[in-house]
Design a protein around this nucleic acid. Structure first.
Length: 713
RNA sequence: GGCGAGGUAGCUCAGUUGGUUAGAGCACAGGAUUCAUAACCCUGAGGUCACGAGUUCAAAUCUCGUUCUCGCUACCA
């Protein structure tokens, strides 16, 4: 494969509404950083961009909740996240932010370009609107009861208790978070990106050109989307936090966060170019640039379908690969900050990466374990015991111990200097060791180029293992015992230690992308400059000059103690328990009425006049047939007798009633509601249901049986 | 309900186009050793490859069905 002229590597923009956990780190940032460090060691031209995603609706909502401003929130989290990455050795060339004017300008230009080329279309739809606040409500501005778990504080896009993704329409008793009132529906016009126009392009690009070199899960997900029928997606929203829609009719609207965020990669590149006096253009426009997006699997659609379409329309290059990782679970459960079941990067840093605790080496310990269980092909699981085992059993015992025993022996038997080679005593073992180093380097290189970071790291440790075996076979400490009687002993010792030292130098180069702090410390031990870490040096056994004196031994890592692990586990459980109690209180408080505002009562809808009510034609009907709608979990298809006619009515009650149990029931029907097709069947009316605090449904029926078709007023 | 990805030793994972007794690391057991952070080195034990059927001389691998996990997605007028 031809080496690209330059690389542009991106890692998903973290959302600046809170701290990020180690699942995020393992998903995108760590693999990206390893790849970038490798490329840089190869002296390739590469720019690594990232930044805070600071728009979207969640941030202003959080601001309201915390009694502060959106700006204050992002100004709080942006620097913390940036510093967290630094502390963990994630070395972006630039960590930008989407609230920056340069980004606003870039995103605006992007939108205008697409708009003026006719690549967008507009549509008018009904959206929830808060009359009191005089504002349209984005999904996250609507709260209500989650239809699947009953949590009363679920948002219009997702329930934070059960994690189910929702749409505002699904919420039971939707309420505006601005005023606490029930929202109404109102017309609004938005710009859409018609993905459907680009199906042929996507099919060819993804399903023909990249089926074999992209990860199966990524291609599978894309295929699923394309086959499911591509829809136009709204690119604007009614909101005042974000990049203003820069064309006529855009007042009060901003670019939808998913449209503006990936453009953040471009504006970050521009800012990097300004800072470094470079030209950003080739990075996004020259086909000889290799663009790679590192993301988690939740981001696949945006980076493989939507953003590429945007890039194509805008005339930019397309990603060469999108090596999305699966998810990392924690101690048997999904990671979730809101549920308290996670390890925040910030917490880990404050607890573990303290000077008295081991400092930077503890950052590398985390990197080591996370990468060793990197969810490259399926979800994986972080356990504190696993962390301890990986660090103590492999990193310390195999890798660091190899370096340490080499250093100790070198000081004891070779006066602390790199010993001479005595070629007449070199044997097959010495040759085999050098050969192994060369082979391992090739293996690791190939694995890194294929984004197999877990396997690549394993190979480095394995090389240290070979070093231990080599030393074990040579037994220089035995030779040292008869140094007086055996004239060749010192020469053999010299050869062994020389080999071990050269191997250490190679290990430093090869471990560098994974454990940069450790590589640096090894350079310090060897008294060499960072330049030695360049990839081309790996595979050579002349990296340390004979006669050169090296520093005294120094441990690279400390062991992780059982008590530390026990403490972490206890804290994790306590944390989750606290959050759980908090949430249950919220849910319990809602019992007695479905969803309440601060006064504890479901708020009344806005007043209507009699004429409004008069428009509704309510009738008594009798269910004469009921069966489940195929391929729908919640729908029942009912035939209802209205006396003068029989109607098919669909109702979302399949989870609450067995079809055979409700035949013969008398119910209240909205008889003049416009018909609506669901799952291919037309529903000719609506059945009224009462709901109690537990979410249980009841039919609204006349107290005694009366004639079907009777009117209700 | 549809689609996608997965289910291989106690744990974390490999298994290329179907081909001898299914591999690695950790953990475990035994041995050897002492230069080293009770570290290293050697040896060993361990699996009906989720389950069932089919194709084949031959299946972890291909086909069909079932089941479990994760993700995306549809349905509550």
């Amino acid at each position: 494969m031809k080496t690209p002229k330059r690389y542009l590597i991106t890692a998903a923009l973290p959302y600046a509404n809170g701290l990020k956990h180690i699942g995020h780190l393992a998903g995108a940032y760590l693999p990206a950083d390893i790849y970038v460090r490798y490329l840089k060691a190869q002296k390739r031209e590469v720019v690594f961009v990232c930044g805070s995603d600071e728009h979207g609706t969640a941030i202003p909502i959080q601001a309201t909740k915390e009694g502060t401003t959106a700006q204050a929130i992002i100004d709080k989290y942006h620097p913390i996240i940036e510093q967290n990455f630094k502390d963990l050795g994630i070395a972006f060339d630039i960590y930008h932010r989407t609230s920056d004017p340069l980004h606003h300008e870039t995103a605006s230009e992007f939108f205008k370009d697409l708009e003026s080329n006719g690549d967008l279309e507009t549509k008018t739809t009904q959206q929830y609107f808060d009359t009191q606040a005089n504002s349209f409500l984005a999904d996250r501005y609507i709260k209500g009861t989650c239809p699947s778990c009953g949590y009363s504080e679920a948002y219009g896009d997702q329930c934070e208790k059960c994690g189910k993704s929702l749409s505002p329409e699904e919420l039971i008793n939707p309420l505006s978070t601005l005023s606490g009132n029930a929202p109404i529906k109102k017309e609004t016009t938005h710009w859409y990106l018609p993905l459907n126009r680009h199906e042929d392009f996507l099919r060819k690009w993804l399903l023909e050109e990249h089926t074999s070199d992209w990860r199966p899960a990524v291609i599978g997900q894309c295929k699923s989307w394309i086959d499911g029928g591509l829809q136009a997606r709204a690119v604007t929203r009614d909101l005042d936090w974000g990049v203003k829609v820069p064309v006529t009719g855009g007042d009060g609207k901003v670019l939808y966060v998913w449209f503006d965020a990936p453009i953040g990669y471009i504006s970050a590149t521009k800012q990097w170019a300004i800072n470094n006096n470079k030209d950003w253009n080739p990075y996004w426009n020259d086909p000889e640039t290799k663009l790679v997006h590192f993301i988690g699997k939740d981001n696949i659609v945006f980076h493989c379908i939507i953003f590429p379409v945007m890039l194509k329309l805008h005339g930019n290059i397309l990603p060469e690969n999108v090596p999305a990782n699966e998810f990392m679970n924690l101690e048997g459960d999904k990671m979730s900050t809101s549920r308290g079941w996670s390890i925040e990067m910030d917490d880990y840093i404050n607890k573990w990466i303290k000077k008295e605790n081991g400092g930077e080496s503890l950052a590398d310990c985390l990197r080591f374990y996370l990468n060793s269980i990197s969810p490259e092909s399926k979800d994986s699981e972080f356990t504190w015991k696993g962390f301890q085992d990986a660090v103590n059993g492999e990193l310390v015992s195999i890798f660091a111990n190899y370096v340490n025993r080499t250093w100790v022996l070198m000081h004891k038997l070779c006066k602390g200097k790199v010993p001479k080679i005595h070629t007449e005593f070199l044997d097959d073992d010495d040759n085999a060791l050098l050969l192994s180093v060369k082979e391992t380097k090739e293996k690791i290189t190939a694995l890194l180029e294929q984004y197999k970071f877990r396997d690549a790291q394993f190979e480095v440790v394995n090389l240290a293992r070979l070093g231990n075996q080599y030393m074990q076979k040579k037994e220089p400490w035995i030779l040292a015992k008869n140094i007086e009687t055996n004239p060749t002993a010192q020469a053999k010792i010299d050869n062994c230690i020389h080999g071990c030292l050269q191997l250490t130098a190679n290990l430093a180069i090869l471990i560098n992308p994974f454990l940069p702090f450790t590589a640096k410390k090894m350079c310090h031990l060897m008294k060499v400059v960072d330049k030695m870490l360049e990839w081309e040096n790996a595979g050579n056994f002349n990296l340390l000059k004979m006669g050169y004196s090296l520093r005294p031994p120094e441990l690279l890592f400390r062991k992780i103690e059982d008590e530390e692990i026990a403490a972490e586990l206890a804290e994790l459980k306590a944390n989750a328990e606290a959050k759980k109690t908090k949430m249950e209180n919220t849910t319990n408080a809602a019992e007695g009425a479905a969803a309440k505002n601060e006064n504890g009562i479901t708020p009344l809808k806005p007043e209507i006049v009699f004429d409004d009510f008069g428009k509704i034609d309510l009738r008594v009907g009798t269910i004469i047939e009921a069966k489940k709608v195929e391929k729908a979990d919640k729908l029942l298809a009912l035939i209802v007798d209205l006396g003068f006619e029989k109607r098919t009515i669909l109702s979302g009650i399949a989870m609450h009633f067995n079809p055979e149990d409700i035949i013969g029931k008398q119910v209240t029907i909205v008889a003049n509601l416009a018909p609506r097709k669901m799952r291919g069947i037309e529903s000719q009316g609506m059945i009224l249901m009462a709901e109690d605090a537990q979410g249980k449904l009841y039919f609204v029926s006349p107290s005694e049986a009366i004639a079907s078709g009777s009117t209700i007023a």
